[in-house]
Design a binder for these strands. Sequence first.
DNA 1: ATATTGAATATTGTATACAATCTGCATTAT
DNA 2: ATAATGCAGATTGTATACAATATTCAATAT
Lengths: 221, 221
Amino acid sequence: MKIFATNLAKTASSSDIIYDALRDSIISGQIQAGESMRQAHIAELFNVSRIPVREALKRLEAQGLVQSLRYKGYVVSPLSHAEMEEIYEIRANLEPIVIEKSVANMSEETLEEAKDYCDSFSSETEASKWGEWNRLFHETLYRDAERPYHLKLVGEAIDRVDSYLRAQLVLTNGMEVAIGEHHGILEACLQRDGVLAAKRTREHILGSYRVLIDYLGNQSR
Amino acid sequence: MKIFATNLAKTASSSDIIYDALRDSIISGQIQAGESMRQAHIAELFNVSRIPVREALKRLEAQGLVQSLRYKGYVVSPLSHAEMEEIYEIRANLEPIVIEKSVANMSEETLEEAKDYCDSFSSETEASKWGEWNRLFHETLYRDAERPYHLKLVGEAIDRVDSYLRAQLVLTNGMEVAIGEHHGILEACLQRDGVLAAKRTREHILGSYRVLIDYLGNQSR
DNA sequence: ATATTGAATATTGTATACAATCTGCATTAT
DNA sequence: ATAATGCAGATTGTATACAATATTCAATAT
C-alpha cells in the first residue's frame, strides 16, 4: 500500500510560530532596538497564553536578538558599533568558505534561482524590499554548501545586523556598487570558480561594512 | 552615605540556574548524546515546576546542545563527523583572530593566570580533569580580546564538541603534543607577539582535530 | 503464534492562577 | 515647593491544572 502522507508531526507548536513571527518583526525592523515587548500583549495578538510567548522569547534571547532583565521584561537588543564590526568581521571570514564549498556542488536550479533574485534586487525600486532580495540572493548561493553549522552562525549574524539595518534602509548609498558586486559573485559561480566567488564575497561584505560605517558617520553629524 | 551592596536584581532565576546546570551536565559528558531528558524528572531534581525547566531547554535548543521533537521530548544532540569538522574549521578561523586581539591588550594578571592553568593542565594526572584545565587555559588567553560576539560563538562551538569529547576522554593520545603547543602559545603571548600566538593557536586547533579524527578512525575498527 | 486493536499510562504543550517584583502616582513630611 | 513614603496597578516568574499526543501492553482476531 502506498499513501501520500505529509508528516503531521511537523506542524509547528505555538511557541515555534510565535518565535518565527517575532524574529521576522525584529529583523524587518518593525520592532526596533530598545523597544520593550510585553508578554501579555504578544500573547493577546496570537490568542494564546504567555507560556509559549515566553519560550519564544527565551530562544530569541539565546540568539541575542532580545535581552531580558528579571522582572523588567524583554527589549530588542541594541547593536553597538563594536558588535557590528565584529559581526562583519565574522561574516567576512565565514561566508567565503561557505560559498566556495557551495560552488563545488552547485546545481543548475540554484544558479537559476540566484540569477532571478539578483535581477529582482537590481531592478527593485522600492527600497523597503532591497533587504529581502539581497538576503534571498545570498542565501540561495550558500544553499548547496552542506555546511549547516556555518549557515546557522552566518544566518544569526545576519539576523543581528538586519535587525538594525533594515529599519535604517542603509543600502541606499551603495546600491549601484552592490548590484555590480552581486553580478560579479554570480558570474564567478556560473564559471564554477569557487575561489573567485569566495574572494568577491569577502570583498562584498567588507565593502558593505565600509558603506555602513560611512553612512553612520554622516548620520551622526 | 556609602553602602556596599550587591545587586540583588542579578540573582538568577530558576530558569537560569537550571540552564547552567543542564549545560554543565551535557558538556561534561554526564548526560550523553542521544539521552532523553524528561521534564518532570529534571523539575523534581530542582524542586520546581516544569515551566522553568522548559525555558532552560528552549535556550539549550537554540544553542544546538539539545533537540526537541514535539510531544516526544528533548534529547542531547548527537554530533556527526561532518558537524565536528565544521566546528573545528570555524574555531580554526575565529580563535586566532580572538587571541591576536587579546594579546594586544593582555594584562599581567591574565598572563599569570594562563600560566597557572597551563601548568595545571601539564601536570594533571587525572584524565577527567584535562578538559576543564584545557578550557580554562584557552578562555583565559581570550579574555582580554574585547570581542564578545566572537567569544560567544567560539564558546558555543566548544560546548558542542565538549559534549562529545569529554565523555570520550579523547585527548589521551595527544597530551604530550598538546602540552607542548600550549607552552608555545603561552610563550608567544608572553613575548606580546599576537601574530605568532594566532598562528600557533590555529595550528593547535587543526592539530587537535587531526588527533581526534585519528582516534575516531581507530575507534571504528 | 503473530499481528492488530484499543484502552491505560506517560509525557509533552498550553491555559489559568497565583506569587514576586517593579513602576507610577498620590499623599505626607520637611 | 520639593523630596520621601507608601499604596495600587502593572508586569514578570512560577506552580498547578488540564489538554493533546505518544507509548505500552493486554485483549482480541486471524
